[in-house]
Amino acid sequence: MALLDVRDLHTTFRTDDGLVKAVDGVSFTVEPGKTLGIVGESGSGKSVTCLTIMGLNDRRSASTSGQALFKGADLLAMPKNELRALRGNEISMIFQDPMTSLNPVHTIGRQLVEAVHLHQDVSRSSARSQSLDVLKAVGIPNAERRIDDYPHQFSGGMRQRVMIAMALINHPDLLIADEPTTALDVTTQAQILKLMDTLQKEYGSAIVMITHDLGVVAEIADDVVVMYGAQVVERATAEELFARPSMPYTWGLLGSLPRIDHDVERLAQIPGTPPSLLNPPSGCRFHPRCTYAMSICQSEQPPLASATGSETHLSRCHLDQATRLTEIKKLESGHFAEVT
């Protein structure tokens, strides 16, 4: 059984300009101990998807429907107390900006101890020694001394380590990481990704890794969900996605990436800008920017269906199999630039 099974998730925000459909029918599963990468450009609904699962949206402006089954129990239908008991305990979350995600007026130690006490009935000294252990596990040098420091005394990379420590302290089964390395330098990013990988092996947690960087996905994900305009447009194992990406948006994403292992004179650019979620395009959300768009694309929303015959590989596109295969062939031979 999947650890997390998200089915047809919808989240709508009431705003002064109208209804923003920030998540519009998203489904995916996360297997125990595996890593799911969610990629997409900013504004595609990645963060809101995860905040909805965690029950952390502003209750006054957000309305939600669908299911998020965690070990079989629906997180969205659960009483608030039960969900709170799971949060930080069986499901943890870390956020993009390590500079602002820790409370500046409490010491690191106090914030870690708080996380322990919220879910375990243990003595102060035991909570503190657990905190110290987990700080050591995430590689904070001089943990004994630094545990009583305040967040502003740590660098960005070190703060993200502290966030990871705090998320892992109660040994969760699922860790949701929302762009945990986006604000960091490459060298620090490499350290943090490596750390997450090591800790995942040690604790056996599943990870949902949100990112806009396909490189990061390739680095650590087992499965991948590509989001565009509040919807899932492609879902596959990491191998499948990079070997046989099967719809024009994914092609565009891969082609627009300058990369160290390929030389191209011009990058394949996706024309235009991402869709407004206040007033999304009719039919396929990507059709206004798609070079392959046909008339059916404007009127009919393609279903998320098997693309290449593999049942783990789904995508949303009206293109016929043959066209897609020829395009994938081009990609395989490295002609990223000629996709559009």
């Binding site: 008991a85 949060r87 930080g88 956020f95 602002t100 708080e114 919220l118």
Partner: peptide
């Protein structure tokens, strides 16, 4: 609306704890 308040909720802190030790003091 600070990020660390969201962090506190993500830790599973009940509303009154969030209020007392993460919102009011700051």
């Amino acid at each position: 609306n600070e990020d660390y308040v969201r962090t506190a909720r993500a830790k599973g802190a009940p509303e009154w704890v969030v209020m007392r030790s993460h919102i009011l003091r700051n």
